[in-house]
Design a protein around this nucleic acid. Structure first.
Lengths: 203, 203
DNA sequence: TGTTATGTACACCGCCCTGTGTGCTTACAG
DNA sequence: CTGTAAGCACACAGGGCGGTGTACATAACA
């Protein structure tokens, strides 16, 4: 057990400053945006000295990138790994966004940072591609004729709903879900040989 | 003629500082974003002294709002007033975005400013609603069963393409246009009995 | 025990930002 | 020509920002 130091996460016997910093980032970056959240404020919210923060992260940029990486597991697998839904339902479940989500943080970061080379921007790109890929996988599972295309289309709908929700200050996901239902039904051949679809509620 | 002063635009015999400021805003806010463009840089680009800029605009906030208001005529009417296209083609023409458009400035402003109360944010909301309304009008013209819904859906597609283009650094408008075509065809009854379809689409 | 990694407290730096104060120049109207 | 308003040059205030230096406290392990 003397070798548990130097884990990939770095910290070995402290009192969890890094986690508090990232947790505070999650909250503040969402509520106020990245640019409008200063390191002073962030450290105060995390109950961490600024010095400590800069020992864990070389700079704000790295902190932002790490903050974005923390989202993958929660949303992504939370939707796609549900075995209680048919593939088609899983595709639609991606549009059931809890109202606690003001705007996809990846879009926000890409817009706020405004630099495609920024590590966080690349992280956002990777995430968006991963989501589209998982949507495509599920689309394939649902028997879509062109799963990649459907996945890309659904991803576009999600992003559109997110952006529009932000600009209009009104939930746009139901509208996006309605479009998604149309696209899904159009993409899955009526003779679809998929495994578990039983009811169709198209209108 | 002694009373031509105090026109709605304010300036009466100067050498056009206000126009230069707004023109420079147009360019810089797009290229660099709003937050990353300082007033110093902006005034330098506009060849205007900072003092003059603050005599025309009470602050950066007002300048940003005015900058957004300058977009309405160009894009909006440039697409919808084309009489050489059928209504259906006009709806699709909204997705023909010249590559010189990095991201819808309204979305960018709403994200960057991060304050729904900001005058520019309200301006963005108004614009988005106006676009949706014009899309709905055109949809009605095209004989859509539910024009409002189709207009809202197309607007969502446009915003999704804009956001996705920004995040992925790749043009997403063709994909959005493909979806739009599907939605339009789904929304317009094959037996379209609207008043103004005289041109038999060159299908 | 002492060493070392970790976290803290607080002051501090230089930079850039929005925004002003002041006095001078230019151009047009009468 | 003269008056007046538009615009200009320059310096500066006030503040927030990202980021550091220093000295000290604490927890885990040898």
């Amino acid at each position: 057990m003397t070798e548990l130091e130097k884990g990939p996460k770095g910290r070995r016997r402290g009192r969890g400053a890094r986690e508090r910093i990232l947790s505070a980032s999650q909250q503040l970056f969402r509520e106020q945006g990245i640019n409008r959240t200063g390191m002073d404020q962030l450290c105060a919210a995390a109950e961490v000295s600024k010095r400590t923060a800069y020992q864990h992260f070389t700079g704000k940029d790295e902190l932002v990138a790490e903050y974005l990486r923390r989202f993958d597991p929660s949303v992504l697998s939370g939707v796609f790994d549900r075995t209680d839904l048919t593939p088609r339902e899983r595709l639609l479940a991606a549009f059931d966004i809890p109202p606690t989500t003001p705007l996809c943080p990846y879009i926000a970061a890409a817009v706020e940072l405004h630099d495609p080379q920024h590590p966080a921007s690349q992280c956002a790109r990777d995430y968006k591609k991963a989501v589209a890929a998982r949507l495509a996988d599920t689309a394939r599972e649902a028997g879509a004729a062109d799963p990649e295309q459907l996945g890309e289309q659904l991803a576009l709908l999600i992003d559109g709903a997110a952006a529009r929700t932000r600009v209009l200050n009104a939930d746009a996901f139901p509208a996006a879900a309605a479009i998604a239902a149309v696209l899904i039904d159009n993409a899955i051949p009526a003779t679809a040989g998929d495994d578990r679809r039983r009811e169709e509620v198209s209108s």
